[in-house]
Design a protein around this nucleic acid. Structure first.
Lengths: 238, 238
DNA sequence: CGCTGTGTTGACAGGTCTCAATATAAGTGG
DNA sequence: CCACTTATATTGAGACCTGTCAACACAGCG
């Protein structure tokens, strides 16, 4: 179950190529680090189960979480263009992943052009997401950032599980949420309680229920994004 | 002169493919908009001369500049995966560009796999840049953001013009700089004068001279990025 | 030469951070 | 399964950074 399905329908050949790309699956525990910023880049990963955070550390010790990875994501691909890994990958729940060999990935551009195009599109998609996030963090206040964050996460969960309703499990601490949207944990907490009080969201432990999507969307203020499926500029298979 | 040269050395065939991709060059004036957020996506662009801003607008009227495009950049590629353009492209200097047909771009994945891989890498590079910018905006103060901004821009200018020294022309208003690093123009001004006073930078009109790289780098605090040239995971041409 | 946009500056307001203390939940070892 | 330890959530007070508003200087441009 790969995110690539968002853009193209895979042929048998492409599906097979994708399978051959990956090594055997392995598991890691909650809190474990898969790879740290600055490490040698020897492989990439696919995330099969669990949540993984991708973060960038600053000299001062602060860190920014640049991506919350959900099952189906490819991990570590930004580092393909670097000598040292760009990001630290940490599991926030127990996770199952596979390794992707760099050589295999490189061959893919020859063996499965349409698959390569899907990876390209997936990368552009990440770019758009980052653009929207930088817009949210750079130009809006705490409540708007938190609203955009919750909506975006909910959207992504729905892609993975179409039956997903308004409530979901959020296995992140408020500090991690803060590191994602550029706030301190203290202020994330205050903003959450504000949302509680307004009846916009409801929390019980790490279960979050979005109770007023319109209000959240109005707050978030980011433009809606409609991803293209089966783009007509991409030649059809064969 | 394309940014792709950063990752691979183009063969004649690849260079030719790249040329065929582009329509005749055309010019636009300072302040003109090439394409607005929400427009239909019918093409992409290469920027040959001039500076172009890529920005995302919020419902409230604020906007975030998500990328400052320099000559050699491909423009509008994030919108390849969207039905409506993700970003508004505005020239801040007179600019020369070419159009890239979407069909042609799609065929490239079949006709020139290595070139396609270079575009993929270029996209990942943008992603890393955005990750670092979100880190800067989300987790650091005004002075650090401005330092990171100036250093990053200087680095990019040096890629284009290796003889580039510590002084360069910055054709942006302080408001545009603010929209880029998440500050108001007023605060950008205050921070610039602070840098002036400390002797870290020197300004005369829109000429900027970086006078103390060490101090700037210490301030910026973002990890250094070393792009890989000719990655060994990519099959060689032939 | 007047206009309009941009840079500069000051006073003040407001949002977010910092520090610190408690309460609560989660995880651990016996 | 309990007692203990640690991480996380919550709350308050005050400091600090940045935004807002407003005025003025200055430059580029028609």
């Amino acid at each position: 179950m790969h995110r690539l399905f968002e853009f193209i329908e895979l042929t048998d050949h492409e599906r097979h190529t994708l399978d051959r790309l990956q090594g055997p699956s392995f598991k890691i525990g909650r809190g474990q680090t898969i790879r740290s910023l600055g490490d040698e880049v020897t492989e990439a990963y696919f995330l099969l189960e669990g949540w993984v955070l991708s973060s960038v550390g600053l000299a001062g010790g602060d860190r920014q979480i640049v991506k919350i990875h959900l099952p189906g994501d490819m991990l570590g691909s930004p580092s393909l263009v670097l000598r040292k890994a760009a990001e630290t990958l940490t599991a926030v729940t127990p996770a199952t992943l596979t390794k992707v060999s760099l050589k295999g990935f490189g061959r893919l551009f020859y063996d499965a052009p349409r698959l390569a195009a899907a990876f390209f599109m997936s990368c552009q998609q990440e770019r758009v997401v980052l653009m929207d996030r930088i817009t949210s963090v750079g130009r809006t206040r705490a409540a708007q950032r938190l609203a955009a964050f919750l909506l975006h996460l909910h959207d992504r969960l729905r892609v993975i599980a179409p039956e997903q309703d308004a409530a979901f499990h959020l296995p992140l601490t408020q500090e991690q949420i803060g590191d994602t949207i550029g706030l301190t944990s203290v202020h994330v907490n205050r903003t959450f309680r504000e949302f509680d009080a307004m009846g916009i969201v409801h929390r019980r432990g790490h279960m979050i229920e979005l109770r007023d999507f319109d209000a959240l969307r109005r707050l978030a203020a980011v433009p809606a994004r409609e991803w293209v499926r089966f783009p007509d500029w991409l030649p059809s298979p064969n």
